[in-house]
Simulated assay, not measured.
Amino acid sequence: MPVTILGDTLYSCPRQNLHQNPQYWSWLLKFYGFYKKGFLPGPGGILDQSNKAIEVFRILDDANDQCDRVEDEKRKKRGAKGSPPVQRPSR
């Protein structure tokens, strides 16, 4: 599926970029973790942050939300079949 970031549409597999730029992704995921805990990467408020960083964080939030929904559906289907529900790890 294509992904649009700041008006650029990308068609390549995101994992390919992970292998080509591991240091960048390490930095990005570290700051994404801080963002999830309420800490922004730059000084100031949300309006003072890099547009690119906030857009990437939004995309990661959306991807995580989609994955969570798929996992919830799988869990509901397993529960409907009579198997015990799988506990989801807390974040």
Results as ranks from 00 to 15, higher is better:
Met1Gln: 12
Asp61Gln: 07
Gln49Asp: 04
Asp61Gly: 06
Gly45Trp: 03
Gln23Lys: 14
Thr9Cys: 06
Asp48Thr: 13
Asp48Phe: 13
Asp65Gln: 10
Thr4His: 13
Phe57Ile: 01
Gln87Asp: 13
Met1Lys: 13
Ile54Pro: 01
Gln49Ala: 05
Lys81Ser: 13
Leu28Gly: 03
Ile5His: 04
Pro85Thr: 02
Trp25Asn: 08
Lys37Phe: 04
Cys13Lys: 11
Tyr11Trp: 06
Gln20Gly: 05
Leu6Pro: 01
Asn64Ala: 13
Asp68Gly: 09
Asp61Glu: 13
Ile54His: 01
Val56Met: 02
Phe31Val: 02
Gln66Arg: 09
Arg75Ile: 00
Phe34Leu: 09
Val3Asp: 07
Gly38Gln: 05
Val70Thr: 06
Phe34Glu: 10
Cys67Met: 15
Ile46Val: 15
Asn17Ile: 06
Trp27Ser: 02
Cys67Val: 13
Leu29Tyr: 12
Ile59Gly: 00
Ala53Gly: 00
Leu60Trp: 05
Arg75Pro: 05
Gly42Val: 00
Pro84Asn: 05
Pro85Phe: 05
Pro2Cys: 11
Asn64Cys: 10
Leu6His: 04
Lys77Tyr: 01
Gly42Phe: 12
Ala53Cys: 02
Leu10Gln: 11
Pro41Arg: 01
Asn21His: 11
His19Val: 01
Arg69Phe: 06
Asp8His: 15
Ala53Asp: 06
Lys77Arg: 13
Lys37Leu: 10
Cys67Ser: 12
Lys77Leu: 08
Met1Asp: 13
Pro89Met: 02
Gln87Glu: 15
Asp65Ser: 10
Asp65Trp: 11
Leu60Gln: 04
Ser50Trp: 06
Ala53Tyr: 04
Ser83Phe: 14
Cys67Lys: 14
Ile5Leu: 15
Asn21Met: 03
Asn51Trp: 09
Phe57Thr: 01
Trp27Ile: 03
Gln87Asn: 10
Trp27Met: 05
Phe31Leu: 04
Arg58Gln: 12
Gly79Ser: 11
Lys77Asp: 03
Pro89Ser: 03
Ser26Pro: 00
Ile54Val: 11
Gly82Asp: 07
Val86Pro: 01
Cys67Thr: 12
Asp48Asn: 15
Glu55Cys: 04
Lys77Trp: 02
Glu71Lys: 08
Gly79Met: 07
Lys81His: 04
Arg78Ser: 08
Asp72Tyr: 02
Gly79Arg: 06
Val86Glu: 10
Gly45Asp: 15
Gly82Val: 05
Cys67Glu: 11
Asn51Pro: 12
Gly44Pro: 08
Ala63His: 10
Trp27Lys: 04
Pro2Arg: 12
Thr9Glu: 13
Trp27Val: 03
Asp8Pro: 02
Asn51Lys: 12
Ala63Arg: 10
